[in-house]
Amino acid sequence: MSEAPPLDTLRQVETPEGVALVLRAAGAVPRALAWLIDLAVRATVYFSAATVLGLAGETGAGVMLLLLFVLTWGYPILFEVLWHGQTPGKRALGLRVLRGDGAPVGWLASITRNFLRTVDMLPVLYGAGLVSMLADAHSRRLGDLVADTVVVYVDPPRRPSVLPPGEVQRWPVPLGVEEQQALVAFGERSRALSVARQNELCEHLSPVTGLQGDAARERVLAAARWLAGRSAGDA
């Protein structure tokens, strides 16, 4: 997981399936930048259309009012629901709107959080929203609190685990989740360590394996391959 900006906080949620998720809530600055990008996009669309619709008299003026409404209210809602919680501005900044439980944002939640911008804007320049974001542990404005949504960072796709080729063997004793992750992480990073350093680390597990030196290292790597779900000889 890439490093989050220092003012951002972690939000831990558990899905109905029992899967633990760690979400990195985005702070006020990246969200403001995303909003400015979206504002620029909407302004560009509006004024580009206005140059054409302005020639159509009253009909054009009516269409421009409709377009203004759609860009003001429909733009964020449609993008958030249909584009995986991201407007163009949020996508540019690597942000996404999710429900409080980590599920994708739906129509009702998106409509609620966006219509309540009228409250967050008070008294001027999103003053109420900024105060709410600074006071909330997960940087949620009032609209987010009411709709139970949160704006988080989108983590880059994880690269598939790559372990050195070799034997695959089950670990002799049951392991907890963190212990399994530690063994797989060691296997993935082993190529960056000297053989002597690998042996030194693996010998800490000698009370379990009963092995020393190269034998201890190969036993740990074999277990890492098994935990990673790889077959013998995979690179």
Rank of each mutant, 00 (worst) to 15 (best):
G166W: 04
A222P: 08
E178F: 00
G210T: 09
A196V: 09
V52M: 05
A222S: 14
P123Y: 04
E167Y: 01
R219Q: 14
P88E: 12
A185K: 05
A147I: 08
L130K: 07
F79S: 05
T59D: 00
R99E: 08
V81S: 03
L98H: 07
A196R: 11
G213Y: 04
H204E: 14
R91K: 15
L201E: 03
V41A: 10
V124D: 02
A216R: 05
L122Y: 04
T59S: 01
P88L: 11
G127R: 12
R141W: 02
G176Q: 07
R197L: 12
V45K: 02
R42W: 01
W226A: 10
P30N: 11
L67I: 10
L67T: 12
S48L: 15
A43I: 10
V195R: 13
L122P: 05
Q198F: 00
V168N: 05
A235H: 11
L95Q: 02
L193M: 15
S161R: 11
W171V: 08
F186L: 14
Q180E: 15
Q181R: 14
R113D: 07
R158P: 02
R140M: 13
M121H: 01
V195D: 13
P165C: 07
R96E: 13
A224D: 10
V162F: 00
L201N: 06
R99G: 09
L66T: 14
D120K: 01
V124M: 12
R24Q: 15
A192V: 03
L93N: 08
